[in-house]
Simulated assay, not measured.
Amino acid sequence: MARSITASFAVLGLVALGLTACDAKENPYEVKKKASVDIHSYEKEMTPEELAEARKAAGHPSTDQIAEENAKMFEKGAREYVKTRLPEYRDIVTELRAYLDQIEKGAPKWKDDAAFEKFNTKYKADVDAFLDVYDELTAKGVEGGNTQADLGWAVRAWEALNNDLGPGVIDNAQLPVAIKEIRDRLDKVSAALDDIEKDETLEVNPLYKAPKKDKRKKKK
């Protein structure tokens, strides 16, 4: 019997040692905590060149490419805006050319203040009405993209010319120069309108309705 008890204690001892050994092993089901990253340790920032190279390596477009694509999308939308209102833009150009003709033909007749005022009274009212239509069409110069850039330049130059009109202006050597510069810029606008009209990639807004010409506001 003594041998059996001794043997039993020996077995229990071995089992205990086995359990201790198991406890010492790594638990395969234990979830380890990841070491936190100290963001303050990253003091060095990437230069614009390094950032661009990193974006390129990752297959992302560069900031210049993004800006270029955005500019193309903006200009396409602007051209569609113009194409939707193409007849009105052509009317604006035609009317502005007619005002230049009036100045060119009328200037030699403005011998004195009375002669000029006779012309200018109606002319100023027509100019105000024209600018109302122009502002409505172009959203005060906001819409139209590159086409508007040239048209806006021509309109501003014409307004500046109007401020210089008066008796004796025909003797100013800059008068024909100013008129020619405005006409040349209007030629660019007309060419742009022709190009927009032929561009089949541009969509016209089917919901747009042009205002009737006889309802244009006229200032008297």
Rank of each mutant, 00 (worst) to 15 (best):
A98K: 14
A98C: 09
A98I: 09
Y99G: 01
Y99S: 05
L100P: 03
L100R: 13
L100C: 08
D101S: 09
D101W: 00
D101Y: 04
Q102H: 04
Q102D: 12
Q102G: 05
I103R: 00
I103H: 02
E104R: 13
K105G: 04
K105E: 10
G106C: 02
G106Y: 03
G106V: 06
A107N: 01
A107E: 01
K109T: 14
K109P: 02
K109M: 14
K109G: 04
K109Y: 06
W110M: 05
K111W: 09
K111Y: 08
K111Q: 09
K111F: 11
D112H: 04
D112S: 11
D112Y: 10
D112P: 07
D113T: 15
D113H: 09
A114K: 13
A114V: 15
A115E: 07
A115L: 02
A115Y: 01
A115C: 05
F116K: 02
F116E: 01
F116Q: 01
K118D: 07
K118T: 15
K118C: 01
K118P: 01
K118M: 11
F119R: 05
N120C: 06
T121R: 08
T121P: 05
Y123R: 15
Y123H: 15
Y123M: 13
K124E: 11
K124W: 04
K124N: 14
A125K: 12
D126G: 10
V127K: 08
D128M: 14
D128N: 12
D128A: 15
A129Q: 06
A129D: 06
A129P: 04
A129N: 06
L131K: 02
L131R: 05
